[in-house]
Computed example of a mutant assay.
Amino acid sequence: MRMRFLKQMAATLALGAIALLGSGCTTAIVLVSLHSKLTEDEPIACRNLNSVERALLARCAPFQAGSLVTKDVHASGFNVCPLTLAARDPRFWPVLPELLAKGAQPERCEQAPLRALAQADACPPFERASATELAALRWLARADARAVQHDVVRVLSCPSARATGLATVLDEWRADGWLSVGQVSFSPLGALHPGHLGSPLARALEQQGHTARAALIAYDGRLPGGFDAALRSADLAALDWWLQRAPELVNRVPPNFSGQTAWVPLAKALAPAYTGNAAQQRRVVEHLMARGADPWLRLPHEPQRTVVSLAREMNSPMLPLLDRPLERALHRLPDRPLDPPRTPPTGSKALAQASLPPAGR
């Protein structure tokens, strides 16, 4: 702060000197150059920015409706599309209607503005948006075909979107055939928010041929897959929706992305941060166990470990739920860490073992 004050003081003195020495051209040029050098790190004053820059910089708030100039909309000075900047940050939603009215087009943006919003917040506060702002967001969803994407579907089906009626965009997409099997590179069922799986839309998507198992394929998106999202949020009704249609998910979930390995729901639920809090963690573990989850299952990425041994290593409070005497007896596993898997014999050693008579003869 002190350095900034000194710079401002020096700049003021320089300007004063310019005024006093106005008759000396060379001196004035030198002093102007000095002033520019001293203030080059300072942000440009809001009054010197163009109308779009002022509208989309938080330090220049509040936005004045009617202040956008059409030529600025088409040449904003930003490296990022103004529609993207306005859509992805709720603070700038008031700018959206005027940007669109002055000719801003989503096709000029590198990605769909609503996708940028989805990547910034999986469930934005749509309830804070005005009617005109919601109308602008709806227009972006209908006018930009690139918005038909996994993460955008998740956002448009989240609780705040449902509460404000914005989720009906998805019904319109389905009615127009935008979500039909073969028309999208992702599964709409896997993209839906867990709380929207019991909706008429989800039932209609199933009637059109979408399935839960098809929703386990890889997709282009940052937000977790449908079953993963249900598990993270401890949405037990959504978990049951998935398990009724794909019971194998209780023990093993296939990878959604390249380089990812299959994973075990019980093992993921052991991480305290995964479900958010201890109460939700316990509910999820109990729910999975009640539906047949096997705590003695070996982990796909670490076959020397089971869910139980992992819980023991983590000193997890979930261990008593997992390591029950009856289950241990059924699995005939010792109450100790598993031995590492043995490497099969090869070469002459394998031939020698193969020639031995069976034990007991």
Rank of each mutant, 00 (worst) to 15 (best):
G77Q: 02
F92E: 03
L85S: 02
A86P: 15
L96W: 11
R91K: 12
P82W: 08
P94K: 12
R88W: 06
P97M: 07
F78S: 15
C46K: 11
V69Y: 04
R59D: 10
T84P: 02
A45T: 03
V52Y: 04
R91L: 14
E53M: 11
S67H: 10
A65P: 06
C60N: 14
V69S: 07
K71R: 12
L49W: 00
A61K: 06
T84Y: 05
H74M: 01
A45R: 15
R59M: 05
D89R: 09
V80T: 14
N50W: 04
V69I: 14
V69K: 14
V52T: 03
L49H: 02
N48I: 00
N50D: 13
F92R: 08
R59N: 08
H74L: 05
E53K: 14
A55P: 00
V69P: 01
T70N: 05
A75N: 13
W93H: 01
N50T: 12
C46A: 10
P62Y: 00
C81H: 15
G77P: 04
A87I: 06
Q64D: 11
Q64C: 10
D72Q: 05
V69R: 14
V95G: 04
C60F: 08
V73W: 12
T70D: 08
N48G: 00
N48L: 14
F92Q: 09
P90Q: 11
C46S: 07
A87W: 12
S51W: 13
K71C: 03
L56T: 03
S67R: 07
L49A: 02
A58L: 06
T70Q: 15
L56E: 05
P62W: 08
V95E: 03
L49F: 02
P94Q: 10
V73K: 07
S51A: 01
T84D: 00
D89F: 06
P97H: 13
C46E: 04
A86G: 12
A65S: 15
A86M: 15
H74F: 07
H74Q: 07
G66Y: 10
L83H: 11
R59C: 03
F78I: 15
L83R: 14
C81M: 12
D89V: 08
F63N: 10
L96G: 14
C60Y: 14
R47V: 10
L56Q: 00
V52K: 06
N50M: 12
G77R: 06
L85K: 03
T70K: 10
P62I: 04
V95F: 05
S51Y: 01
W93V: 06
P97A: 14
N79I: 01
A61R: 08
C60V: 09
F78A: 15
V80H: 05
